[in-house]
Design a binder for these strands. Structure first.
Ligand SMILES: [Mn+2]
Ligand SMILES: [Mn+2]
Ligand SMILES: [Zn+2]
Ligand SMILES: [Zn+2]
Lengths: 147, 147
DNA sequence: ATTCTATTGAAAATTATTTTCAGTAAAGGG
DNA sequence: CCCTTTACTGAAAATAATTTTCAATAGAAT
């Protein structure tokens, strides 16, 4: 699988640098919902050292290219997540978040057909080219529900 | 209709102050998707002067009580929106956002039953008490699509 | 190899939001 | 009412995630 993220950057005209390779490689290994700071610490321990500025710059580029997604789960910092299909497997999913402790659960929903239909309707109605969507449910997790 | 927001704050034990009344009153009149700064400028022009700190404090309280919702549409600042049912009319809706210019469109979806069903399933599966959800579609608006 | 310029790290800057703190004013009992 | 208590306010300072600056470095192309 080499490094599809790095390839994509290269195709877009970005230079293939050691730092970008380190970052894109690590995105498969770091925790699935990582922060910039978290990725920075992850890299400090393992491979090489990449500056936080470069991490921000690279995450920004990958986000614009929609190779990763950027989420605000209300923690005061953003979390990122890979957004590439793994072979023929779609990685698309949604989130369930505890508003108290921030606990995060991925889930897949089975109404994509309906979301697509909705997207189609809105697309025509408002002349929008729809490229993506985000569904997040909020609640209290088991532990936090006892209060 | 007096001021249901202020009433709710009072019930929660917050003191009924002039500043909070000014703020809660203005939420019906300011643009529907306002920023803290935008509300501040709105108040500067009209009624009285409330400090930005107090605006942030009040919006924070209202958000925690879920009387308003706080959104990140990727502009670097949060936008807020009223979240109270207007009589028997549900104000619940979702958003369509242009990722280039930020153009924002409210829309209502007709699959609440299915979302509720999903919430029910997830609730049992993960022992979560689900209290809300957010659906946002991203795309390019008419103008921004030409590039 | 040489040139050109994108990229990097470190430090400084930015900026939305939060906190501090001393003065003010709700609330509520007498 | 008057008094006491303490939540609330504005102004200024602090915070902290992210961005920008800038001089040095290293891809990429010729
Ligand atoms: Mn996820
Ligand atoms: Mn809206
Ligand atoms: Zn929790
Ligand atoms: Zn647009």
């Amino acid at each position: 699988m080499a490094n599809r993220l790095m390839d994509a950057l290269g195709i877009k005209g970005y230079r293939v640098t050691l730092e970008r390779s380190i970052i894109t490689d690590s995105l498969q290994k770091v925790e699935p919902h990582f922060t910039a700071e978290g990725l920075y610490r992850f890299l400090q321990k393992r491979r090489s050292r990449v500056s936080l500025a470069t991490i921000y710059r690279t995450l920004s580029a990958l986000t614009q290219m929609r190779l990763i997604k950027k989420f605000d789960f209300g923690e005061g910092t953003y979390r990122y997540e890979l957004n590439i299909t793994n072979g023929n497997k779609d990685t698309h999913h949604h989130h369930l978040v505890c508003v108290k402790c921030g606990k995060l659960i991925d889930f897949e929903s089975d109404f994509f057909p309906q979301l697509n239909h909705l997207a189609e309707k809105l697309s025509q109605e408002h002349r929008f080219i729809i490229i993506d969507h985000e569904l997040t449910l909020f609640g209290y997790c088991k532990q936090c529900a006892s209060d």
